[in-house]
């Protein structure tokens, strides 16, 4: 199979931390426009996989191809420039800056030192920031320091920071974790809206939520793919039942 049919092709990926293989010979293919949910018990290596794709952790062996670009050799910012965006598990935003500034910093312009020095806040930037803020329910809070937002609002802000980067591949690590029921509902709505027409990899514990958005589900266990396919198929897979209920 040719790898360029996929937006993301992970092959034989292994990472070893002092001999412990957190991810072991993992292969994963994500189609153009697909929403893939990764589930698995604690310590299965879900977050590590995202870390490897976005360059936060360097792999021991294997390859990660994003539209035929090899990501394993690139540094974090180059991977971002290539079009991969990542949302972290704990809201990772700039608390000392306002909501507007958080979004503006993520706007894909003026990313070099001198680009930043001569960056102008023109109408295009302002419009884009406002549009994104509208979609993440923060339009009225643009001037508020991000550190003062609620947990759910911080999660939204980080999603907004990703959106404004206009990534081709969106990676979300537990986007609804720690949210109230009302916030969760709104977030699910938001995610459904933004995932349209994009390739998305989501890590999620919330099965109901996963079922709602997933095209396909990958179950990880001990750094390897245990099962893959539709939610229904995966849920009825005896190996998955064993892992989730067996101990």
């Amino acid at each position: 199979m040719k790898t360029n049919d996929f937006v993301l092709a992970v092959e034989g990926l292994t990472v070893s931390f002092d001999g412990f293989k957190a991810v072991n010979d993992l292969s994963l293919y994500v189609d153009e426009g697909e929403i893939r949910v990764i589930i698995g018990p604690n310590g299965a290596g879900k977050t590590t996989v995202l870390d490897l794709i976005c360059g936060r952790t360097k792999s021991t062996s294997g390859s990660i191809k994003f539209r035929d670009k090899e990501l394993t050799k690139m540094s974090e910012h180059q991977i971002v420039h290539a079009g991969v965006g990542r949302k972290f598990q704990n809201p990772s935003i700039y608390e000392d800056l306002t909501v507007f500034e958080n979004l503006e910093l993520s706007y894909p312009k003026g990313r070099s030192v001198f680009g930043a020095l001569f960056f102008r806040r023109d109408q295009a930037v302002i419009n884009q920031v406002k549009a994104i803020a509208e979609s993440i329910f923060l339009a009225d809070l643009l001037d508020k320091p991000a550190g003062l937002l609620s947990h759910g609002q911080k999660q939204w802000l980080e999603i907004g920071m990703l959106l404004i980067q206009e990534p081709d591949l969106l990676m979300l690590d537990e986007p609804v974790a720690g949210m109230s029921v009302a916030e969760r509902k709104k977030t699910a709505e938001l995610l459904k809206r933004i995932t349209k027409g994009r390739s998305v990899v989501v890590i999620e514990h919330d099965m109901q939520f996963a079922e709602e958005i997933a095209d396909r589900v990958t179950v990880l266990h001990q750094g390897q793919v245990l099962s893959e396919g539709s939610m229904e198929r995966v849920q009825n897979d005896p190996k998955v039942i064993e892992v989730y209920l067996g101990h």
Binding site: C54, R56, S75, E76, H77, V80, H81, G85, R86, F88, S92, I93, Y94, E95, D96, L97, L105, S106, P108, R111, S112, A116, M161, Q165
Partner: peptide, 16 residues
């Protein structure tokens, strides 16, 4: 300012 607190996040906003 962003770098001071969240150096890693700045990388993932696309900055070297």
């Amino acid at each position: 300012v962003a770098m001071r607190v969240r150096e890693e996040r700045v990388r993932f906003s696309g900055y070297d």
